[in-house]
Structures are given as C-alpha cells and as structure tokens.
C-alpha cells in the first residue's frame, strides 16, 4: 500500500516528539493501545492557567499512519483550549492525512490519546473526568 504524501511528511519529520514531566500538575498524559496489538501511543499536553494547551508531545509505537496521526494531533493541540481540543475527531485526522479504511483505527487511537491526556490533566487538577466513548479500535 502506498502512503499519502502527508503521512510520509509527518512520518519523516515528526513534530513534537518527546516527553513532558508526567508528574507536573500542568501536564496531562494519555497512554493508549497495547504492545500486543502493535500500537501504543503516548500523548502529553501542558496546560496553562487559562486552560490553553501550550505544549504537546508524543511518542508512538506503531505503523507509519499511527505515527503521522499522533504527530498531526500534537500540532493541532498546541494553542487550543482544552475544550476546543475535546472536539478533535478522528475523522478529521483521517481526512487530513488521507488514511485508507484499514488505517482508520490508527486515527481512533490518536483521538483516544487526546481524550485520555485531557482526562489525566483534569483528574490531577481535581476535576471530573469526561465520559470517554468506548474505543472502537
């Protein structure tokens, strides 16, 4: 299967690879997937006092589409408020990266990672976690 140019571009020059301090109160960490399934994504956000995401980092074990999806997600997250971030839908990622149907679950994983990072941040700061839709991976 050939990859779209956008997948190749993110894969070759992934944005925001790295690690934020997971113990910091202003950092939310989402770790989704499982090694047995061949994909694990870790996505982290740093949130300021105005509820704006000032930084986002990822590391992903998975196929090229999974890496590109998480790279794109971090790019989109930066500068958004937490509430805006919650509206990112996996189909937006599918569209932007022109993912074929067999790779849709890679984008689902990225959406799950965003939501679970946000929830981690919320719980750390004494807020209720959002109800997460059941992963359809």
């Amino acid at each position: 299967m050939a990859y779209s140019e956008k997948v190749m571009e993110h894969y070759t020059n992934p944005r925001n690879v790295g690690t934020l301090n997971k113990d910091s109160k202003s950092v939310g960490t989402g770790l989704v997937g499982a090694p047995e399934c061949g994909d694990v994504m870790r996505l982290q956000i740093e949130v300021d006092e105005n509820n704006v995401i000032t930084d986002a980092k990822f590391k992903t074990f998975g196929c090229g589409s999974a890496i590109a999806s998480s790279s794109l997600a971090t790019e989109w997250l930066k500068g958004k408020t937490v509430d805006e971030a919650l509206t990112i839908d996996n189909m937006d990622i599918v569209e932007e990266l022109a993912l074929p149907p067999v790779k849709i679950h890679c984008s689902v994983l990225a959406e799950d990672a965003i939501k679970s990072a946000i929830n981690d941040y919320r719980v750390k700061n004494g807020l209720e976690p959002f109800e997460l839709a059941k992963s359809h991976h």
Partner: peptide
C-alpha cells in the same frame, strides 16, 4: 523489540 514492523519498514 519496541519498534513496530510496518513503521520500521517505512523508515
């Protein structure tokens, strides 16, 4: 170990 085959083949 710790890298996924398809992602690796892309690289």
């Amino acid at each position: 170990k710790y890298v996924e085959g398809e992602g690796l083949m892309m690289a």
